[in-house]
């Protein structure tokens, strides 16, 4: 068995652009769920708006990349307002119901053949990165060290992705240590108490929804940059996986989502490589190659369950908090 290749492939996930995109989406959820206590189950919807908000103006209108990013962010703010204004005055569960439904509505709208000319329907959109790639400072070719050998295109997206993640992490850290962050954390604990202290809870919840959504939208852009935009990426499972990443790392932490995403992708790649090679080597005679492809998700699921059972605070969470959580 080629252990070198298994570990090599797993190591690649340490820094891959997809890992960065999941980390950023999870950071958005940390703002929503971990800090403000908003149950947003539609992070996939925010990511979808990022992907299409970037790709459609780039392909159909020929806009420069920065205008495409702004379009995506504007769409995200509007989406957050539509979701938040009617639901954030209600109990927390209503936001969960509305967001999961709204994200599905978006995905189906982008899948339907009705708008094929714009959205590409189920086939999606590709080659929308041309404008951005013109700025690629890396010379053509494949290079790197150890297992980290990529072509210049991947290096470029990888660097952009991690720079964006770093900026977002610093931004989140800054706001969460400020009095703004204090209010938001108070809302998570008991919004009536915060209201009684003269804070406009509704406004803070909307701000938080928009902010976390914007990070989700940026994550959507980062996620599709190395690939094509296809609506089936943005299934509700994507949101659940991002929740898993968040809980894995620690819900109310800055670095938790990033560590969680790295651990998740490295584990996934490792199990995938291991199981598929093990089947080829005849270690699991009862299993076909296709079944092996599914087994990796089972193993990752078990690994996450173990972490959540034995470390409910997540990898970076504060263990002290657990003493008071029933």
């Amino acid at each position: 068995m080629d252990w070198g290749a298994i570990f090599g492939n797993a190591a690649v996930e340490l820094i891959s652009p997809t890992t960065a995109a999941y980390a950023l989406a999870a950071l958005g959820l940390a703002i929503h769920f971990g800090y403000t206590g908003l149950l947003n189950f539609g992070q996939a919807g925010f990511m979808l708006l990022g992907a299409y908000g970037y790709a459609i103006p780039a392909l159909k209108l020929g806009w420069p990349f920065w205008a495409c990013v702004l379009t995506a962010l504007a769409a995200s703010v509007i989406f957050a307002l539509i979701l938040g204004i009617p639901t954030l005055r209600l109990r927390a569960d209503y936001l969960a119901i509305v967001t999961i439904a709204a994200a599905e509505v978006l995905r189906l709208i982008f899948t339907t053949n009705e708008f094929r000319a714009v959205t590409g329907s189920a086939n999606g959109l590709s080659e929308f990165q041309v404008d951005l790639l013109a700025l690629n400072p890396f010379p053509p070719g494949r290079y790197g060290f150890g297992p980290f050998v990529f072509d210049n295109r991947v290096w470029f997206f990888l660097v952009i992705a991690w720079i964006v993640v770093a900026i977002a992490a610093v931004f989140t850290w800054l706001i969460m240590r400020s009095p703004w962050g204090r209010v938001v954390k108070g809302i998570r604990e008991d919004e009536d108490a915060v209201r009684a202290l003269g804070k406009n809870v509704y406004s803070y919840k909307i701000q938080s929804l928009i902010l976390g959504g914007l990070l989700g939208t940026l994550a959507g852009i980062l996620f599709v940059l190395p690939r094509a935009v296809v609506p089936s990426y943005f299934q509700p499972t994507l949101t659940f996986v991002i929740y898993a990443v968040l809980l894995l790392g620690g819900a109310a932490t800055i670095l938790g989502p990033i560590v969680g995403s790295i651990v998740f992708w490295v584990l996934l790649s490792f199990f995938s490589g291991f199981v598929s090679r093990a089947v080829t080597a005849g270690w699991f005679p009862f299993m076909t190659q296709v079944q092996a492809g599914q087994l990796r998700f089972i193993l990752v699921g078990v690994a996450i369950m173990l972490i959540v059972v034995f470390m409910p605070q997540g990898l970076l969470g504060n263990k002290k908090e657990l003493a008071f959580v029933k």
């Binding site: 954390k185 108070g186 604990e189 008991d190 009536d192 108490a193 908090e321 008071f324």
Partner: peptide
């Protein structure tokens, strides 16, 4: 009536 201390602050 039921105290609302912000538990994890």
């Amino acid at each position: 009536q039921l105290t609302k201390s912000l538990a994890l602050l």
